[in-house]
C-alpha cells in the first residue's frame, strides 16, 4: 500500500522568526489591540452575557426530559419499558403498576431518571411508541447542591412543560 505523502513546509525557519522577540511583539500587538478596543467600546464583543442573556435553544435540541400527558391530564406513558431497555447509560428506572384512570391497563408507578448518569442521547425519545417521553423542555443546564437533586421522579417529569409549540417540535426533527 502506498500512501499519498504530502510534505509540509516547516515554518519559523527564517532569521526573523528565529529571533523570537519580533514575533512576540507582533503577537502582543494583536492581544493589546483587542484589549484596548474592547476597553473603550465593548458593544462589539463576541461574548454572551450569560446568565442575564439566555441562548436561543432550537426545537431539535435534546434538553432535560419530560413526560407528556393526554389532553385530560393523564400520563401518556404506559410503562412499556422501551426507553429503559434502549437506554445505553442505564439511567431510567421504571416501576409499572395497574392503571386506575381507565385509559389502558398499565401505567408507571415510579419513573426515575438519574440525570447524573444520562448522556442525553435521545434514544429514549426515539424508542417511545407513544410519544410519552420528550426532551423538549429547553432546559439545557441542570444544577444542584447534592446528588439526590439530579434524580428526577414522576411528578417533576410530568410537571415540566414543553418549550415549543407542537409544529415547532415536529419541525425540529422529532
Amino acid at each position: 500500500m502506498s500512501a499519498k505523502v504530502k510534505t509540509m513546509d516547516r515554518k519559523g525557519a527564517s532569521l526573523q522568526e528565529r529571533l523570537y522577540l519580533i514575533e512576540i511583539f507582533k503577537g502582543m500587538a494583536t492581544t493589546f489591540g483587542h484589549f484596548f478596543r474592547n476597553l473603550l467600546d465593548n458593544r462589539k464583543l463576541y461574548v454572551r452575557h450569560y446568565p442575564e442573556v439566555q441562548p436561543e435553544i432550537p426545537a431539535g435540541w435534546r434538553g432535560r426530559h419530560r413526560l407528556t400527558s393526554h389532553a385530560d391530564g393523564t400520563v401518556k406513558c404506559v410503562a412499556c419499558f422501551m426507553c429503559q431497555t434502549n437506554c445505553p447509560a442505564n439511567c431510567i428506572m421504571i416501576k409499572a403498576g395497574e392503571r386506575q384512570d381507565g385509559k389502558t391497563e398499565k401505567m408507571p408507578v415510579k419513573f426515575t431518571i438519574d440525570l447524573l448518569e444520562c448522556i442525553y442521547c435521545g434514544y429514549c425519545v426515539e424508542a417511545c411508541p407513544l410519544d410519552a417521553i420528550r426532551m423538549d423542555t429547553g432546559i439545557f443546564s441542570v444544577t444542584g447542591n447534592n446528588r439526590e437533586s439530579f434524580i428526577l421522579e414522576l411528578p417533576e417529569l410530568l410537571a415540566s412543560p414543553g418549550a415549543y409549540s407542537e409544529e415547532e417540535y415536529k419541525k425540529g426533527g422529532a
Partner: peptide
C-alpha cells in the same frame, strides 16, 4: 397491546 402486554 404489545407495550402493555406481559407476553411481549
Amino acid at each position: 397491546d404489545c407495550p402493555i402486554c406481559d407476553q411481549a
